[in-house]
Nucleic acid binder design. Structure first.
Lengths: 110, 110
DNA sequence: GAATAATATCTACATAATAGATATTTACGG
DNA sequence: CCGTAAATATCTATTATGTAGATATTATTC
């Protein structure tokens, strides 16, 4: 097992999908809201930033600060965007899961 | 965020699917082989047992020792089986991912 | 009975996920 | 303008997951 392989963790995975789904409006609060709306999952805001930071380090996500344009105040939003490398990674992850789901005994069961 | 939610981690997820796919023949070596064959992923045997043990603690998997029936020796195999709770969990996980994948911007991209 | 094959178990460490408290910035009402 | 509230990000600490590989156990063959 010489060369390290890396994979999207499960939370990383859904955060990336959520960011992607939000297009130009993906920042901490909206990502959190979207996760709650779509899959009913409550995430701590800290969890989110920790994860996006890791994803940035891996080159799967980028972030840019908006100029201060908040409705009622607040720090400048940090907008996230999935990189093309990130998209490739998502695609690979999805294909692998689909392969596993497609196996006989599995598709009969779940 | 009072009550703790738990989710299948990414490795847990694929291990469960693999065990399921192997039916009555799921033990350390075959699970490892299947993962290599289907998605080209090399896993350390220790990683596998650590994970199955955790899944057992959560009630998503059970294991039973075979009588010693190995071809050429070796310790008795430990056969794994996904519990019905495990199946429910897999189903939930799959549905959530499918929801996210189905979102407009996502399905246009990956 | 020594070498080898098939398997599981153990130990230690690295990475990912979670929780929630705290800090920063701006707008609104008086 | 000042205090309060709102919107957001950042920080700190802890727990849960994932990874690696060495070691132990059991049986077979020669």
């Amino acid at each position: 097992m010489a060369n390290k392989q890396t994979f999207l963790g499960e939370f990383e995975h859904i955060v990336m999908l959520t960011v992607l789904s939000l297009g130009d409006d993906a920042y901490g609060v909206t990502v959190r809201q979207q996760l709650r709306d779509i899959i009913g999952r409550e995430v701590a805001i800290g969890a989110l930033y920790a994860t996006t930071e890791r994803l940035e380090k891996k080159g799967l996500l980028t972030s840019t600060k908006s100029g201060a344009s908040a409705q009622r105040g607040g720090k400048a939003k940090r907008y996230f965007k999935v990189t093309s490398q990130g998209i490739a990674e998502l695609e690979r992850t999805k294909q692998n899961l689909e392969k596993l789901w497609g196996l006989q005994a599995v598709s009969q069961t779940i």
